[in-house]
Amino acid sequence: MKSVAPILTVLAAIVVLWYGAAVWLNSQWIYDQAARAGTEVTATQVLTETMVQDRPVLPAPHQVAQGLWQGLTGQAITSKRSLVYHGWITLSATLAGFVLGTVAGILLSVGIVHSRAMDMSVMPWAIASQTIPIQAIAPMVIVVLASLGIKGLLPKAIIAAYLSFFPVLVGMVKGLRAPEGQQLDLLSTYNASRAATFWKLRLPSSMPYLFASLKVGIAAALVGAIVAELPAGASSGLGARLLSGSYYGQTIQIWSALLTAAALAASLVMVVGLIERATLKRMGMAR
């Protein structure tokens, strides 16, 4: 309970700052309107009108909350205007990409740890892959796959995987190499095979590293899925909501979609955290 007060204080401070910024940023439009009409506006008028604009530069928190609520509950969740619908589209691509990326990351890390040739050849490419902006890669993947007749979930999942495999790869390489000399020597005295060493020692040792990477990876997968929705001219998904919002100056819609994405990311990371705790507890590694 002790932590509630500080959390609420920080939250309140953010809301106050946000309202202040909303008044400051949105007032310009009101002054411009008044100047054009040749009328005067009082400070109170400015204050009230900055809170209720249709297309504010920065929507006030209650407007975003309203937009969010409207988006989540205002219609059937299958409706094109429902944030639940769009959230699910993005979530499904995120999860598919996350699974793809995790599997790829783990497989590559196993190869890298066991083969010196792979260590030398794969790692530089993996690092290079992450230095290319995803915004540059995403349209190409979408276009190429579309020309092959692959549309919908898979291209988005591939882009999500492109971002999420890397943290898993780096974490697992570190994790699989975590066992030190003495533990490897011990298995050597048992004349253990490489396979036995992998299953009995390397893989269990890597679990804490794996989960740390998965948390980064699942958030990255979400970013990838959203970015993948931008160039496709997709009509559904949180990315599409962001894009159409910015086309039509629907700032409230943009912020609602942003908050939905943030909440989604937080929940996904939390779910991974829960699985981590349960797994490590079962393995006797949590104290």
């Binding site: 003495q182 533990q183 020597d185 011990l186 050597s188 005295t189 048992y190 004349n191 020692l201 269990p204 679990m207 393995m283 006797g284 590694m285």
Partner: peptide, 19 residues
């Protein structure tokens, strides 16, 4: 070693924490 002729005890117990 291949015949598993000996057991080796190291300075650190080196037990697997997950077992």
């Amino acid at each position: 070693r291949q015949e598993r002729s000996y057991g080796y005890v190291f300075q650190a117990a080196g037990l697997y924490p997950w077992r």
